[in-house]
Amino acid sequence: MVPVEVLGVRQQQNDQEIVVLLLDTSAELAVPIVIGAREASAIAMAQAGVATPRPMTHDLLRDLLTAVGVELDQVEIVALDGGIFFAELVLSNGTRLDSRASDAIALAVRTGSPVLCSAEVVAAAGVEIVDLAQQREVEKFRDFLDHVNPEDFTNPEPGDDVEDGGSPDTPP
């Protein structure tokens, strides 16, 4: 089992699926888990520290554990089978409970409990993380390409030294 960080909830632009992203920092891999809108809301609200006037299901479960004197030691994402992630809640009394991954993550965020993921699951479902600085540069370049005109290349700006046929960045 490897510790993972719950990065947050994102909506995929291509197919509108909602995923929760788990980050394995040691391998620089993210594990996207497709979840429902209600579970996404529960995770996002807990991460943002939003309190509801009445307890949501995950709040109730957290409060029930506290009332009976049991803590959630950790959440483990234990398997991936047919595109479905399987999780277990590991309680302080030694009990392990089968759980949907999204519910387990929502509870872990509320209790501050660690989330661990099977190395096999990370290897099978993990996607490589692009460096954030590198990602910003790619986004800037895409924005440039979206707004560039052919005239931007044929009419040099004042001060650009392109008389020798080189580019403005070419040393004289």
Rank of each mutant, 00 (worst) to 15 (best):
Q12I: 10
Q13R: 13
Q13G: 05
N14H: 14
N14Q: 14
D15R: 12
E17D: 13
E17V: 11
E17Q: 13
I18D: 00
I18A: 00
I18E: 01
I18N: 03
V19R: 08
V19S: 05
V20G: 02
L22F: 05
D24P: 02
T25D: 11
S26L: 12
A27H: 05
A27M: 14
E28I: 07
V31R: 02
V34D: 04
G36K: 13
G36V: 14
A37G: 08
R38I: 05
R38A: 07
A40I: 05
A40P: 01
A44G: 11
A44D: 15
A46Y: 01
A46Q: 00
A46I: 10
Q47K: 08
Q47P: 04
Q47S: 11
A48V: 10
A48K: 13
A48P: 02
G49Q: 14
G49C: 09
A51S: 14
A51R: 15
A51P: 02
T52R: 12
P55Q: 10
T57C: 07
H58C: 07
H58V: 08
L60R: 05
R62D: 00
R62F: 01
D63L: 10
D63G: 06
D63A: 13
L65D: 03
T66C: 05
T66N: 09
T66P: 01
T66L: 06
A67H: 14
V68Q: 12
G69K: 14
E71C: 04
L72Q: 04
L72Y: 00
L72I: 10
D73F: 04
V75Y: 01
E76Q: 15
E76V: 13
E76T: 13
E76F: 03
E76G: 02
I77A: 02
V78H: 00
L80C: 01
D81T: 12
D81H: 15
I84K: 09
I84T: 14
F85Y: 11
F86S: 12
E88V: 12
E88I: 08
L89C: 09
L89Q: 02
L91S: 07
L91A: 08
L91T: 07
S92D: 07
S92E: 06
N93V: 12
N93F: 11
T95Y: 05
R96P: 00
D98P: 03
A101T: 05
D103E: 12
A104I: 08
A104H: 04
I105T: 04
I105H: 00
I105V: 12
A108F: 02
A108K: 01
V109N: 00
R110H: 07
R110C: 05
R110L: 09
T111F: 01
S113H: 09
S113P: 04
P114L: 08
A119R: 15
A119W: 06
E120D: 15
E120R: 06
V121S: 03
V122P: 01
A123Y: 08
A125Q: 10
A125R: 01
G126M: 01
G126K: 01
V127P: 03
V130L: 10
V130Q: 11
V130N: 14
D131P: 04
L132Q: 09
L132A: 13
A133I: 09
A133S: 12
A133N: 10
R136N: 06
R136I: 07
R136W: 07
E137Y: 11
K140Q: 14
F141E: 11
F141G: 03
F141L: 12
R142F: 03
R142W: 03
D143H: 10
D146R: 06
H147E: 10
V148A: 13
N149M: 09
N149D: 10
P150W: 04
D152T: 04
F153Y: 15
